[in-house]
Each structure stands twice: as structure tokens, then as C-alpha cells.
Amino acid sequence: MITFVGLGLWDIEDISIKGYNAVKEADEVFIEFYTSRISSSLDEIEKFFGRNVRVLERSDLEENSFKIIEAGKERDVVILTPGDPMVATTHSSIKLEAERRGVKTRIIHGASIISAVCGLTGLHNYRFGKSATVSWHTSRTPADVIKSNLKIDAHTLLFLDLHPSPMRVNDAIEKLIVIDDGLRKVYGVGIARAGSESAVVRCDRLERLKDIDFGEPLHILIILAKTLHFMEYECLREFASAPEELKRLVV
């Protein structure tokens, strides 16, 4: 069997009791830091569980994923994933292929940034449109996704590239403005270290948001829709130090 275990948002203590027990009972334990990361080091993770944990590289998750699937035929295998396992399409592909080959799988979910951003900002979950990733390799895709979402009056959740180093909100905004200078006037929300005691949430126009020091990663960026529900506005004022001028978006 292959069990996908979500580690949650910030550190190893975010894992569920069910997930912890699955790790303790497994024959082999793997972890991947390709799709996301937590603040705990590998040494801290191994000490927490009291066992060896092997780090999976990108190739292990993609072209060589059959090796993990083969291991799951004979042994109980756990794959640890920051956040919630099935948010990443890579893990969905492994699960699908495993089931097709007769290997049973199960999922033990963890807290995801996708839902955490709603709690941190007060934005309504149903107001979000398609998400995208801002990568170090410049691409028009995130700007195009933002524009498509603005047309349907939806918020945009932007994941920030982790490789070769975690991108910061400031870097992401600079890239977006280079792609489309008109984006500097739209409103966004930058979030740093979600799930930690030192989380930072700030809202402003992108041209001002890019100059804010959010501190250490991990960071994520939200581009606001053309309009806001009045409760979204009130929450952003309270939770994200949003400027009063944002009220003009309230309908």
C-alpha cells in the first residue's frame, strides 16, 4: 500500500495524529520537497518520527515513480508531502498509476495553503478563479490567468516558484509588472510563513506591495478581484492592513 500523508503548512508538528501513526507503522517512509516545503529540516523530521526518511527528487516523482509503485506492492510505503498531498497533480498521477497496477492507496489529508489563505485574509473561497505559478523563468501565463479571472470578477491565487530558491512576493510582483505594466495598479495580498506564529499578511496595490519586507519565505500572492464583498473588505482592513481606498471595490 502507498499512503500519501499531508504534513500541513509550517512544521512537522502540523501533521495529524492519523498521519503520524501511519509513518510509525510504515515499512518505508519517503518525503518530497519539490512541490512545497515546511520549515523543519530532514534531521528534525527523522528525529520527530524516530526513523529514517528518504528524500524524493523530482525524477523519483515523475519518470521513476514506478519504483515507488513497485515498492508499494510488497510493503507499506508512506510518502510525506508538505500541505495536502493531492493539491499537486504529480501525486495524483502516482496514485492513479498505482491503482491501475493493483496497488492500494490511501490519503491522509493535511492543511493546505489553498484553504489557509481564506482564513488569513478573510477572502471568500468561492470568489477564487483559476490559480497559476509565477516562475523564475519568465512566462506570460500568470498575467493571462489574472486577466481572465478579473473578467469574471474572481480572485487569483499565485503560487511562487521554489527552484532554485523560494521566490518572494517582491520578486513575483516585479516579474508580473515586467510582463504587464498595467498590473502595478491592481490590488494584491502578500502572505508569508502561513501557519507559523510569525505569519505576515499585507494588502495594497502591487506597486506598493512590492516594497514591503515580508521576511523569510515561504510566500504566496493573491490578486484581488474587481469587486469585494463588504466582509472581505473589513477583513482585509483588519487582518492585512489594507488601505481605506480599497473600499471603492466594495459592491
Rank of each mutant, 00 (worst) to 15 (best):
G6M: 09
G6E: 11
D11Y: 01
I12C: 09
E13S: 15
E13V: 15
D14I: 02
I15F: 02
N21V: 13
A22H: 02
V29E: 05
Y34D: 12
T35Y: 08
S36F: 03
S36C: 04
R37E: 12
I38G: 03
S39V: 13
S40D: 10
S40W: 05
S41P: 09
S41Q: 10
I45W: 02
I45K: 02
F48R: 06
N52C: 15
R54M: 14
L56T: 06
L56G: 07
S59W: 00
D60E: 13
E63A: 10
I69Q: 06
K73R: 00
D76K: 05
V77W: 01
V78A: 11
P82C: 04
D84E: 11
S93N: 09
I94R: 01
L96Y: 02
R106Q: 05
H109R: 04
I114R: 03
C118V: 09
T121F: 01
L123E: 08
K130Y: 01
S131Q: 14
A132E: 09
T133P: 00
V134L: 09
T138Y: 04
R140G: 12
A143W: 00
D144S: 11
V145D: 14
N149Y: 02
L150D: 13
T156Q: 11
L158Y: 00
F159P: 10
L160V: 07
P164Y: 12
N170F: 02
D171N: 06
I173Q: 03
K175G: 08
G182Y: 01
L183A: 08
V186W: 01
G188Q: 13
V189I: 13
R193C: 11
S196Y: 03
E197P: 03
S198A: 07
V200Y: 00
V201A: 08
D204E: 10
D204H: 02
E207R: 05
R208C: 10
L209V: 08
K210N: 04
D213N: 08
F214K: 08
F214N: 08
P217A: 07
H219G: 01
H219Y: 01
T227S: 11
F230L: 08
E238Y: 00
S241R: 00
E244T: 14
E245V: 11
L246W: 00
L246E: 09
V250S: 06
